[in-house]
Amino acid sequence: MSVTINVGAAYQARLDARGGILTGPTANLAPGHVQANLAILPEELAHDFLRFCQRNPKPCPLIAVSETGDPSLPELGRDIDIRTDVPRYRVWRNGELVSEPVDIRDLWNEKLVAFLIGCSFSFEEAMLADGLPVRHIEQGCNVPMYRTNVPTVATGPFSGPLVVSMRPLKAADAIRAVQVTSRFPSVHGAPVHLGDPSLIGIADINNPDYGDPVEIREGEIPVFWACGVTPQSVIANIQPEFCITHAPGHMLVTDLLNSSISVI
């Protein structure tokens, strides 16, 4: 897969995150650029997590892995510092969320490895270009995300439920969304479920586990994609002593272009 690098809006977004100006969700920010979910783990867990991602490519499509102890990711863009360039982080200790800082320089150490995972915000550009509505962008809020009863493929100590993101669409638009998003396997690809949320263990569609609820209008059905927040449900399940993730919806904006990860 060839990739295209571009700088400008994406670099500015990272500078704004680094400077504490950008602290909110990144949906539709720097249009055209690949965004990435984040999981930072101690080196002793890194190999098993890499295998977990390989065995669960729908929710965890890897786009980059850092060198141990190195916060830079030059393959993803200019001057990236993973300790500062995400708008908001989550710090986990023994599976419990303990803080949501905007900077993790004081927590970084030479034994940590950063994993960058593809984000569905990338295929939303293609949906919008095709005239398909993206409700959380319309409403100016975070995408709704839900823990399901669908298990991931357990690998080493890593196991737990699949997390999905949801976008409501009319039936004809949902069919078109399947066609559009299937071109982007490195950012979750086609939906994993359409329709009745109870069939995948979601009890209340208006009460997401992460993000914000969105309006589902008459004639629309919920459409669910595998989500890069899945590692956070796994972390809560296996309770590692220490790890760091992004806050849901608060992504690393890279210099890669969405057009370069499509399989058209």
Rank of each mutant, 00 (worst) to 15 (best):
L199S: 09
A190Q: 12
F224D: 08
E220M: 10
T230K: 03
I264D: 11
I221R: 05
N207E: 11
S262I: 05
N206T: 13
W225D: 10
I221K: 04
S186E: 13
N206P: 10
L199Q: 15
F184T: 14
N258T: 15
S233F: 00
N258E: 14
I216H: 05
P208V: 01
N207G: 09
G219C: 06
S233E: 07
E215Y: 00
H193F: 14
Q232K: 03
H250Q: 11
N206I: 02
Y210P: 08
P191F: 11
P213D: 05
I235S: 06
T254V: 10
H246A: 00
V253R: 00
R183M: 12
A247L: 13
G201V: 06
G228S: 08
R183H: 14
L199Y: 09
G249S: 04
P213N: 04
H193V: 14
D212F: 06
G195C: 10
P240T: 03
V192K: 13
V263F: 12
P213K: 06
S259R: 14
H250T: 12
V192H: 05
S198P: 00
A226R: 07
I235H: 09
E220Q: 15
D212W: 02
S182E: 15
R183A: 14
S259H: 07
A203T: 12
L256K: 02
L252E: 14
E215P: 10
D196L: 12
G249T: 01
P248V: 02
C243V: 09
G189M: 13
S260R: 01
G219M: 06
M251I: 04
P213M: 02
S262W: 02
F242G: 07
T254S: 15
I200G: 09
G189Q: 11
C243N: 08
P222E: 04
E220H: 06
A203C: 00
Y210W: 15
S259W: 00
V187G: 03
L252K: 11
P240V: 04
F224R: 08
I261S: 05
G195Y: 10
S182Y: 10
F242L: 04
Q239G: 00
S182I: 01
P213A: 13
V223P: 12
S233M: 05
N258D: 14
A203P: 00
S198V: 12
V229D: 12
A190M: 13
A236E: 15
F184Q: 13
H250I: 01
L194D: 05
I264K: 13
Q239T: 14
E220D: 07
I205V: 15
T245R: 02
H250L: 08
V229F: 01
V187C: 15
V253M: 10
L256Y: 07
E215Q: 14
D209F: 07
T254I: 08
P197F: 00
Q232T: 02
P208M: 01
G228Q: 03
H250F: 10
V253L: 14
F224E: 11
D212S: 15
H246G: 05
S182D: 13
P222H: 02
E218P: 02
C227F: 03
E218I: 07
P240H: 00
F242M: 04
P208K: 01
S233L: 03
L252M: 10
V192Y: 04
Q232I: 03
H193S: 11
P248L: 03
Q232L: 07
P231I: 04
I205N: 13
I202C: 11
G211H: 01
P213R: 01
P213T: 04
T245K: 05
T254L: 08
A190P: 06
A247E: 13
M251R: 07
